[in-house]
Structure formats: structure tokens, C-alpha cells
Design a protein around this nucleic acid. Structure first.
Lengths: 221, 221
DNA sequence: GTCTATATACCGATAGAC
DNA sequence: GTCTATCGGTATATAGAC
């Protein structure tokens, strides 16, 4: 025991491959035979080590979100102001999503099925992330930097945008082929791009601002 | 012919039920037997009228996005300024998503699978919506009302947030049960709520503005 | 712990009677 | 146009030898 959990560990390979297959085919579309073959283990061994399909899926979800949250925690340790902390969250989630291509699809599929098969362990981790963001928003508001916004709406807007932006690359590519020529920078977005543009957008949107010397008319409605 | 396409039309019932089943179970998880039974048609009749599973799925996607786009077009006809037009898009998409509970899950699942099975017809409609939003952003920038932002990022941020916000209700409910008590207004969000909060956020984020004078320090914790 | 072989069930699609 | 019956393929899961 205390064996290094490297690629030589069958369970590590299985979870790795399973994450990939579940992400691209969904739970119902994933094939145990496929996962076993690609992980170079016998199918019976897969059942022996991880259990049935549901258990495998739950393990994949837990591992995926844990990895992302660990990154966020580490990055958040150094951040101070509310603006900075929010920016760190956006850039770290974007980086984690880009680094692990399975993250966004897995979350999107769970979102689509109403999160019925999300284990409680995973829900607790999601709740922790929400609490963190809510605290940041409250801090920023107390400091007079942020407007008063609904934390739930804001948190889901942030996470939703990052995840959709990350997972949207293939569809953007198809849309570009229809919209027309090789429009510059239409498709390929690095995590840094996504983080920069989006945290700008959201931070501008949150910031308390002087009603702008009412040029002429501000609102239309 | 020229028969009214009401519930008495088997094809209408089939597409209706299929949208629901594909939305909640995904393509691989959907069962033809299930769809046929719930649409009260014989399975062989389903194949006779709509074709195989892929054709049925494509028809569902097309019908779903067409219905949403028709609403947007109608609502957009009356809007003038860039701000107003963007607000109309946000509120109409939110309303359409809330009204048709299959819309968000179907889009999320396609997003997760990279849109491989989206028919070209549907891609063209998505491209048209993108073009509309891009024009609004360009108009607003020309009028000195919006900052210069990337239209692709912005469009996907907007659509992603609305869709995630709409589809996120069940997961919010699960998170609430973990985060704690019946926090007011944590879960149930009307389309109007979503549209109002989010279009505020995005419009503030886009607006050209004078920054607020920094108060003091930022941190409480 | 590892693999082969198989139980068991289901699902998409169609043939063919009426 | 409508239905029954069924083919053929494939999926998860396990039994049992080694």
C-alpha cells in the first residue's frame, strides 16, 4: 500500500478514461466495454476495482470537482481585495476548465439532467464554492466597491459563462463556418483570454459607479 | 391536408414528447419505446411518420430553436436603442427558456457534446442570432454607449448565463439544502427575475462609465 | 487478483399482415 | 396508414476457473 497513484495504478487509469468517456458521451452513452478497453483493463477488473457504472460515474464527478476546487483554494490564498479575489476565481476556474477538458462537459450534462445523479459529497463542494463567492460579493459591497447584487444569480452567471465559454469552442467553429470567412480570433480562446474578457465584463458589471454625468438620456424605458 | 397541427396530429404529439424525453435523458438515454408510448402512438408509426432516432432528434432541435427565435424576432421589432435591444434579447431568451423547459437542457447537452449532431439548419439559426447580437454591440459602441468588447465572448456569456440560470433551478435547490435554511429567494426564479438581474449585470458591464471614487480599504475578514 | 465466458435484458429498427 | 411480432445487435453485470 501507499503505492504511488500513477498511470501504473489501474484505478487511476480507469477514472481518467472514464472521465473522458462520460464527458463526451454522457452517462447513458458511455460504454463500460469502451472504458475498460481504453484503460487497458479487463472489464471484470473494472467492476472489481471501482464497482458498477453509477459508482464509477460518481467517482469521476468527485475527482473532477475536487481537482478544480483544490486549484481555486490554492490560488485564493494569496488574494486580498474583493475585486482581486473575484478575478482569481474567474481566472482559476477558467484555467482549470481549459486544463481538464472533461470538466465543462460533465458539469453541463449534470446541469441538463437537473443534477439528479450528483452525489451529496459533490453538492457539498459546490455549496462551498458558492459560499466563497457570496462572501466575496458581500465583502465588496460592504467596502463600497460592488453594487448590491443577488449572490445566487451572480455566482451562477459567472460559472455558467465560464463553462459555456470553455465548452463552446466546437460550436463556435461550426457557427464561424456559417457566418463566414476566417474572422480573426473567432474560435480559439485560451483560458487567459476567457478569464480576462469575462472578469472584465463581470467586474465592470458589479462595480459601483457614479451615475455617469448623465449625458442626455440614460435609460430608454 | 392543411389539417390543423394540434394535439390530434400524431406528429405534433411525437415531437412534443420527444423534446421532453431528449431534454431530460439525452439522445443516448432516450428510449423510442418510451416516446412512442407517451405520445400514444405505435412504435412503427413513429418510424413511419418521423423516421429514425436521429431524424426525430434533429426535428426536435429545429422546432425548439425555431420557436425561440420567432419570439425574439417578434420582440425585437419594437426595440430601438442598443441598450433596449440587448435588454429585449435577454428578457425574451429568458422568457422562452422558462416557457419551454426543454430548451435549456437540449442546448446544454449539445454544448457538452460539441454540437456534433446539430443539423446545419440549426447552426444557421444560431449564427443568425449571433449576428444580431454582434450588430447590437457594434451599434452601441458606435453610439458611444458600450465599451469595445469581443462580440463572440459577449454573446456566449449572455446565452450561457441565461441557459445555465434557467436550467440551474434543481441544482440550486440541492445546494440550498446543504448551505442551510430556507434562504429567501434562493431557488425559485421567474424568467422576469433572471432577465432583470442579468440584463442589469451585463448592461452595467458593457456601459462606458466613470469609475467610482475608491472609499477606503476593502477587507472585512 | 485476473481473465473467459455467459447470463439476462433491452433497444432500435423492420417485416409483413390487415 | 396502422398494428403485431420479432430479428439482430448490444449493453451491464457476474459466475466461475485459474
Amino acid at each position: 500500500m501507499a503505492r504511488a497513484r500513477t498511470d501504473s495504478d489501474p484505478r487511476v487509469r480507469i477514472l481518467d478514461v472514464a472521465a473522458q468517456v462520460f464527458a463526451s458521451s454522457g452517462f447513458a452513452g458511455a460504454r463500460i466495454d469502451d472504458i475498460a478497453e481504453r484503460a487497458r483493463v479487463n472489464k471484470a477488473m473494472l467492476y472489481y476495482h471501482v464497482g458498477d457504472k453509477q459508482a464509477l460515474y460518481a467517482a469521476v464527478l468527485l475527482q473532477t470537482i475536487d481537482h478544480a476546487l483544490a486549484r481555486i483554494d490554492a490560488a485564493l490564498a494569496a488574494a486580498r481585495s474583493a475585486e482581486e479575489r473575484l478575478r482569481v476565481i474567474v481566472s482559476t476556474v477558467a484555467a482549470a476548465a481549459q486544463e481538464n477538458p472533461n470538466f465543462a462537459p460533465l458539469m453541463l450534462r449534470e446541469l441538463a439532467s437537473g443534477g439528479q445523479s450528483i452525489p451529496d459529497q459533490v453538492v457539498r463542494r459546490m455549496a462551498r464554492l458558492f459560499r466563497t463567492v457570496a462572501e466575496i460579493l458581500a465583502d465588496g459591497e460592504r467596502a463600497g466597491r460592488f453594487r448590491n447584487v443577488d449572490p445566487v444569480m451572480t455566482h451562477m452567471s459567472i460559472m455558467g459563462s465560464i463553462i459555456v465559454l470553455t465548452a463552446g469552442a466546437p460550436i463556435r467553429r461550426r457557427i464561424r463556418d456559417v457566418v463566414g470567412g476566417p474572422r480573426a480570433s473567432f474560435v480559439d480562446r485560451s483560458a487567459a483570454d476567457i478569464a480576462a474578457h469575462f472578469s472584465d465584463l463581470i467586474l465592470e458589471g458589479l462595480q459601483k459607479r457614479v451615475p455617469a454625468p448623465a449625458r442626455r438620456r440614460t435609460r430608454t424605458k
